[in-house]
Computed example of a mutant assay.
Amino acid sequence: MMDVRQEDRRPFPGLGTDPQSVRTRIETMERLLEHIVTIPGTNQKIGLDVILDLVPIAGSTAAAALGAYMAWEARNLGMSKWQVARMAGNIGVDWLFGLIPWVGAIPDLLFKSNTRNLRIIKRHLDKHHANTATIEAKLR
């Protein structure tokens, strides 16, 4: 058998339950849902959330389920019921708009519920787990 060193058995980064790992996961999820593709000829970015909204009913529901994952992570961080309820409201509004076939993707371009929810979670993390804060720069 092969000899596996101790440092080679480390878990994947971001799989822990510590606040920094949670922050990494939710930032990645938000990027996937809101910012993976730039619309040609514009600076507007879209993500899986908008793309899924093009599939009537099932797409919007799948996007809401992915967004609910962020709220679940927030609940596990110990965020208040009010904060988690606000996040659920954002997800619900996004889901309702997405139920309108094809046209529902347009409000999603403007509302970006997952970005709003990420802001709520980051505010909590910055206040209660300051060591997870990161410096963010806007790239041109």
Rank of each mutant, 00 (worst) to 15 (best):
Q6N: 13
F12R: 15
L118K: 03
A64G: 08
E30S: 07
D126H: 10
M79T: 03
Q83S: 14
A137G: 12
V22S: 03
I100D: 00
L48V: 11
A62G: 07
L32C: 09
H124E: 04
R86M: 10
W82R: 15
S21P: 08
G67V: 01
R75M: 12
N117H: 09
I91W: 02
S80V: 08
M29K: 04
L118Q: 01
I106A: 14
R116N: 11
T134C: 07
L125G: 00
H128A: 11
D49W: 04
V22C: 02
L15H: 09
H124N: 04
D126R: 08
H35V: 04
Q44F: 11
A88R: 14
T24N: 08
V103R: 05
L125P: 00
S60L: 02
R31W: 07
W95E: 05
I51W: 00
E27G: 02
A63N: 03
Q20C: 06
Q44R: 15
L139M: 13
A130P: 13
L15Y: 09
A105M: 08
L109A: 07
S21F: 02
M29C: 06
F12C: 10
R119I: 02
L52G: 04
T17G: 15
L15T: 15
T61P: 05
F111G: 05
S80C: 09
M79D: 07
G14F: 03
T132R: 04
P19D: 11
V22D: 02
P101T: 04
G104Q: 02
P11N: 11
G78C: 08
I39P: 03
F97R: 07
A65K: 06
N90E: 08
E30H: 01
P56F: 06
G67P: 00
L139P: 04
D126L: 06
N76Y: 02
W95D: 02
K122F: 03
